[in-house]
């Protein structure tokens, strides 16, 4: 009896999960569907299905400019976040030191904080300090939120790291720098790569911090946000699809580069 019931529950849970997945992707599919029209107003189902909006979007200077601004910010955020995150993670998970527990909790505060409120606080602070908000200040704002996340991601990797490897290297006469470069860093590299990708994607897609900290510069999510309310045309969903596709491309490129680099290292050490 309990066997049939168990099977029923399992089936229901599977069905539920599929339903959740469908619901999660309905809005994303909606954007793609809306981009395939050529009418100024949404009249679904479209009379004519066309890629005109994509041709338009790719031909516009705004498209390139928006992508460039978002890319500039996201790349800088990823690089700086990884650099700070490696050291942050060493302090978080590798070393035993007085104050570590307090540090672990302080680090979480920016994550457990409403982002838009952080953006507003930063805007007030910057204006009071006489700093004009621009894409540069957006990099800083993103970092405040992204660095703690990257630190956590690398820390998770560090928890699985065997300290004995470092000690062995020291015993064999390696210097502190050598140990860090040849033992610790390679062991951390999966965490560093996923941390960097996290940082890039979170910055690329961020809206609540960017709204208040970019000044007159505009990122992709910001432009989309402003155009959802006014000035609708199929160009808007088309650009949303292009922007999302661009981030997928970056992730794929990073994955490929990493695979190539691994092969290179493997060949060199063989």
């Amino acid at each position: 009896m309990s066997g049939t019931r168990d099977r029923l529950i399992t089936a229901l849970l599977a069905l539920w999960t599929v339903l959740v997945l469908v619901l999660l992707y309905v809005p994303i599919l909606s954007v793609v569907l809306a981009s395939l029209a050529n009418t100024r107003y949404m009249r679904f189902p479209h009379k004519v299905w066309t890629l005109d909006a994509y041709r338009d979007a790719l031909g516009q200077y705004t498209t390139a400019e928006l992508h460039l601004t978002s890319l500039k910010i996201a790349v800088l955020v990823a690089l700086i976040a990884v650099l700070l995150g490696v050291f942050g993670a060493l302090a978080f998970a590798r070393f035993e030191w007085r104050g570590r527990s307090l540090y672990q909790r302080l680090l979480l505060l920016p994550i457990f904080f409403p982002q838009a409120v952080l953006g507003l606080a930063l805007l007030l602070a910057m204006t009071a300090a006489g700093i004009t908000p621009s894409w540069r200040t957006a990099v800083f704002a993103h970092l405040v939120w992204v660095v703690p996340i990257v630190t956590l991601v690398i820390s998770i990797r560090l928890y699985g790291f065997d300290v004995a490897q470092e000690e062995a290297a020291f015993d064999l006469g390696a210097s502190r720098l050598q140990v860090f470069r040849e033992v610790t860093l390679p062991a951390l590299s999966p965490g560093i790569v996923s941390g960097g990708l996290f940082a890039f994607l979170l910055s690329w897609s961020n809206l609540p911090l960017s709204i208040f900290t970019t000044g007159s510069d505009t990122t992709l999510p910001l432009w989309l946000f402003s155009r959802t309310a006014t000035n609708y045309s199929p160009l808007v969903p088309a650009l949303a699809v292009i922007a999302t596709g661009a981030s997928v491309l970056v992730v794929l490129a990073a994955a490929l580069a990493l695979a190539g680099w691994r092969r290179l290292v493997a060949r060199r050490s063989a």
Partner: peptide, 28 residues
């Protein structure tokens, strides 16, 4: 995966889906 797609895109899609008349849902 959707966490890494901007809120603007996902909420915009929700609006397109819900729109009256020619929205994705009502239109279909």
């Amino acid at each position: 995966l959707p966490i890494f797609i901007s809120e603007s895109v996902r909420l915009f899609g929700t609006a397109l889906f819900m729109m009256p008349g020619g929205g994705i849902f009502a239109g279909s």
